[in-house]
């Protein structure tokens, strides 16, 4: 694989015409073509976009020789941190981005890139759960719905088949820090999950929406946008913003190390920080922008969606932390024990 990728990279290497070019490495279907055309019309810069379908595959191909081919990429929060640690990111100063001040201040000092030295917010969303309101009518804004459910929901709960999200939400419910290596805390977390599992019907991530729509599950761990789609498909589900906290994730545009067109990359990042342009991405992707002042440009359906608008009482969510190898081993063991 490595050899093939580097051979490909060699083939694709062309003389650098730094003037007027920009190479973007992006998720599939995550930016509207009209917005790219608008950037080209405004600046005269030709944009080339290659796509990937997972953070891990993007990391692998950059490490296998594509670094230096691209100017920007769009990793998720934890992947920004990993790429930073692997030395794949370049940094910039706020002065290099005139629109830096448009970033919502709460997204500046993020744990995966404190002070935003290498990245800008792209879109963000959250992971919590949804409850079918025909089945349960009480207050749902607590993680107990999943981990210590009321009688109506017992045996009708789907949880994501994803170690990171289940263990993070479990830790938040118990008030345990992520990546803990404390024996007592981990034992308690493991016991709580094993007891909670008795009330769960199934584990499934890509089926998370389907089981809510079909009625197989009356409550389910889910991403906010996915829950909005379940609602649009007719399920009477409400997305919860639990009082204990929840998981947030954010995709970010990063400036890659050895970017062949660093100036144009900064122009593009600056372009995406203009509220009108950030709103265009949100209208296309249906998540939430990290830029202030986008509201006048948003479609009504997206602006008013309850999944995208946490109630004022909701606490801030937490990002999934990148554990070191030693801590990760413990969480792997808890997960295997939960599913053994």
């Amino acid at each position: 694989m490595k050899f093939r990728l580097s051979a490909l990279a060699l083939l694709m290497a062309s003389p650098a015409f730094a003037e007027g070019e920009l190479k973007v490495y992006h998720w599939f279907e995550y930016i509207p073509q009209e917005l790219v055309d608008k950037f080209t019309a405004e600046t005269g810069i030709t944009v080339t976009i290659d796509t990937y379908d997972s953070n891990e595959s993007m990391l692998a191909s950059l490490k296998a020789g594509k670094l230096g081919q691209y100017d920007v990429a769009v990793p998720g929060d934890y992947m920004v941190q990993i790429m930073g640690a692997e030395g794949l990111l370049d940094s910039f100063t706020p002065e290099e981005l005139p629109n830096f001040g448009n970033i919502d201040p709460k997204w500046i000092d993020v744990p995966f890139d404190p002070g935003r030295k290498s990245s800008i917010p792209y879109q963000w969303g959250s992971t919590a759960f949804s409850v079918n309101r025909d089945v349960y009518t009480g207050d749902i804004n607590t993680l107990a719905m999943i981990f210590n459910p009321p009688e109506e929901l017992k045996g009708k709960i789907n949880v994501l088949d994803s170690q990171g999200e289940v263990l993070a939400l479990g830790s938040i419910y118990m008030g345990i820090p992520q990546c803990s290596t404390d024996k007592e805390q981990l034992k308690a977390l493991s016991d709580m999950l094993v007891a909670a599992k008795a009330n769960w019907a199934s584990f499934g991530s890509d089926t998370a929406k389907d089981v809510l729509v079909s009625g197989d599950a009356a409550a389910g761990m889910i991403y906010n946008g996915f829950s909005a789609k379940a609602r649009a498909e007719g399920a009477n589900v409400e997305y919860a913003y639990p009082k204990e906290g929840y998981v947030v994730w954010m995709d970010n545009m990063v400036l890659l190390k050895d970017a062949p067109n660093r100036d144009n990359a900064l122009k593009f990042m600056n372009f995406l920080l203009q509220p009108e342009n950030a709103a265009a991405v949100t209208n296309y992707a249906a998540y939430t922008s990290g830029v202030m002042g986008v509201e006048p440009f948003l479609d009504e359906a997206i602006k008013s969606s309850p999944e995208n608008n946490p109630p004022a009482t909701a606490p801030a969510g937490s990002f999934i932390q990148v554990c070191d190898e030693e801590a990760q081993k413990l969480y792997d063991a808890i997960w295997i024990n939960l599913k053994k």
Binding site: K197, F203, K339
Partner: peptide, 26 residues
């Protein structure tokens, strides 16, 4: 096991699958 059994418990197949594709990565 994943689709009909709800993936609540590992089977040999899903245990192996998780080592290559899932978060365990071993």
């Amino acid at each position: 096991p994943d689709l009909l059994g709800g993936a609540k418990t590992f089977m040999i197949g899903s245990l192996i699958d998780e080592q290559f594709k899932g978060s365990l990565g071993n």
